[in-house]
């Protein structure tokens, strides 16, 4: 008979909170694993009544929705935590944000019980990405994008741990626009185009890097400076919005899409 932990099992989850956070500036270089360590330690420092799993190696009840790749900033990352004592979501937002390093910022906290959806995953199907391209003119960016959008498929290979995988960038691209932005590169005088893309989530995921690869391959895009990628939003595609200004619903406050809205 193996040893068992002594004493009563840990208290159960009485409240689930959904959290939107941002990963900004230099902290965009944290990987998902880095973030998880930072976040779980901040919970302990903030003394939140987090619930733990049972057993010899108890884990805090935190479930992460798909994280933005290392090196990309984000204004809209989501996760859910389980608490062993009911706590005011606004208070959690403030204490947790204070315990986290500047650059990882809690944007919003809501009680999952108030949401129409059982899981966060049901409320997220696409991301809005901003790709800033220092040193790239709007015309050059638009040309590359037009060439990509003209394709029916745009396969891109990516090296993963399990070998090379191919993703179809074109199929995942819902909408794409180009605008001029205030220059962000080392040379303030150089033009800086900004792409605004809505990308459908899929397995395997199409990442901003894959889109850039496709733009370089198909659209002959050259980027003199490393582009700055930011996830602006995640949510469900709002089919009532115009096609050239596609909106995403807010997973914490928006309602679940009605069945009629899904049908084309």
């Amino acid at each position: 008979m193996s040893r068992q932990p002594e004493g009563p099992p840990p208290p159960p989850v009485v409240q689930k909170l959904r959290i939107r956070y941002a990963k900004r500036g230099r902290l965009r270089f944290t990987s998902h694993r880095d973030f998880a360590r930072v976040f779980e330690r901040a919970i302990r420092r903030a003394r939140l009544p987090i619930a733990y799993s049972a057993g010899f190696s108890p884990h805090p009840k935190v479930s992460y929705a798909g994280a933005a790749p290392t090196g990309t900033a984000s204004e809209a990352e989501y996760l859910e935590i389980g608490l062993a004592e009911a706590t005011d979501p606004d208070q959690v937002r403030d204490t947790l944000d204070a315990a986290l390093p500047p650059g990882i910022d809690i944007v919003d906290v809501v009680d999952a019980a108030d949401s129409p959806a059982k899981t966060l995953a049901e409320l997220i199907e696409a991301s809005r990405w901003s790709i800033e391209l220092p040193g790239v003119s709007v015309a050059a960016a638009q040309k590359a994008l037009d060439l990509l959008l003209a394709q029916t498929t745009a396969p891109v290979e990516r090296a993963t741990k399990d070998g090379t995988r191919t993703v179809d960038v074109r199929a995942a691209l819902v909408t794409a626009n180009v605008a001029l932005t205030s220059a962000n590169g080392p040379d303030p005088a150089a033009e800086c185009a900004r792409m605004d893309l809505v990308v459908q989530h899929a397995t395997p995921a199409v990442r901003p890097d894959d889109i850039l690869t496709a733009l370089r391959m198909i659209g002959a895009l050259t980027t003199p400076v490393t582009p700055l990628v930011t996830r602006l939003a995640q949510g469900l595609i709002d089919t009532t919005s115009p096609e050239d200004a596609q909106r995403l619903t807010d997973p914490l406050h928006g309602s679940r899409r009605s069945d009629s809205a899904v049908s084309p």
């Binding site: 230099r26 902290l27 270089f29 944290t30 990987s31 880095d34 090196g71 390093p101 490393t226």
Partner: peptide, 17 residues
């Protein structure tokens, strides 16, 4: 900063502990 996306584990160079 612009060089960091090109290296392994860039977070080790950003500080902010």
């Amino acid at each position: 900063e612009p060089l960091l996306p090109q290296v392994r584990k860039p977070v080790q160079y950003v500080g902010g502990e």
